[in-house]
Lab assay of single mutants.
Amino acid sequence: SDEELKKRIEELVRRGNKDEARKLAENANSDEARKWWEKLEQL
């Protein structure tokens, strides 16, 4: 689900694993996940 995906992306970003988070968001084929990633990346 998008919610689970967003949690995983956020967790990866928090751990400093941005590349992994980006790949996850891009491969998810989910606009919501991509937007979430872009938002987190700004922080």
Results as ranks from 00 to 15, higher is better:
Ser1Ala: 12
Ser1Arg: 11
Ser1Pro: 12
Ser1His: 12
Asp2Asn: 10
Asp2Cys: 00
Asp2Phe: 15
Asp2Met: 15
Glu3Leu: 11
Glu3Tyr: 11
Glu3Ser: 09
Glu4Gly: 06
Glu4Met: 07
Glu4Lys: 06
Glu4Tyr: 08
Glu4His: 07
Leu5Glu: 01
Leu5Trp: 12
Lys6Val: 12
Lys7Leu: 10
Arg8Val: 09
Arg8Tyr: 08
Ile9Leu: 09
Glu10Met: 12
Glu11Asp: 11
Leu12Met: 05
Leu12Cys: 07
Val13Gly: 00
Val13Thr: 01
Arg14Ile: 10
Arg14Ala: 11
Arg14Cys: 13
Arg15Ala: 14
Arg15Cys: 11
Arg15Val: 10
Arg15His: 10
Gly16Asp: 02
Asn17Lys: 13
Asn17Tyr: 14
Asn17Ile: 04
Asn17Leu: 15
Asn17Phe: 14
Asn17Glu: 15
Lys18Asn: 09
Lys18Gly: 08
Lys18Ile: 15
Glu20Met: 05
Glu20Phe: 01
Ala21Cys: 02
Ala21Ser: 00
Arg22Asp: 02
Arg22Glu: 04
Arg22Pro: 02
Arg22Cys: 05
Lys23Thr: 08
Leu24Ser: 00
Leu24Gly: 00
Leu24Trp: 03
Ala25Met: 14
Ala25Arg: 01
Asn27Trp: 13
Asn27Ile: 10
Asn27Ser: 14
Ala28Val: 09
Ala28Lys: 02
Ala28Met: 15
Ala28Gly: 05
Asn29Met: 12
Ser30Gln: 05
Ser30Glu: 03
Asp31Ser: 08
Asp31Val: 08
Asp31Ile: 11
Glu32Gln: 08
Glu32Trp: 15
Glu32Pro: 05
Glu32Gly: 05
Glu32Ala: 10
Ala33Asp: 04
Ala33Cys: 02
Ala33Gln: 03
Ala33Tyr: 10
Arg34Thr: 06
Lys35Gly: 09
Lys35Pro: 01
Lys35Glu: 12
Lys35Asp: 09
Trp36Phe: 14
Trp36Gly: 01
Trp36Lys: 01
Trp37Tyr: 15
Trp37His: 03
Trp37Gly: 02
Trp37Asp: 01
Glu38Val: 07
Glu38Thr: 06
Lys39Asn: 11
Lys39Phe: 14
Leu40Met: 12
Leu40Tyr: 11
Leu40Ile: 10
Leu40Phe: 13
Glu41Gly: 07
Glu41Tyr: 11
Glu41His: 10
Glu41Gln: 14
Glu41Lys: 10
Gln42Thr: 09
Gln42Pro: 07
Gln42Asp: 07
Gln42Phe: 11
Leu43Phe: 09
Leu43Arg: 09
Leu43Thr: 09
Leu43Cys: 11
Leu43Pro: 05
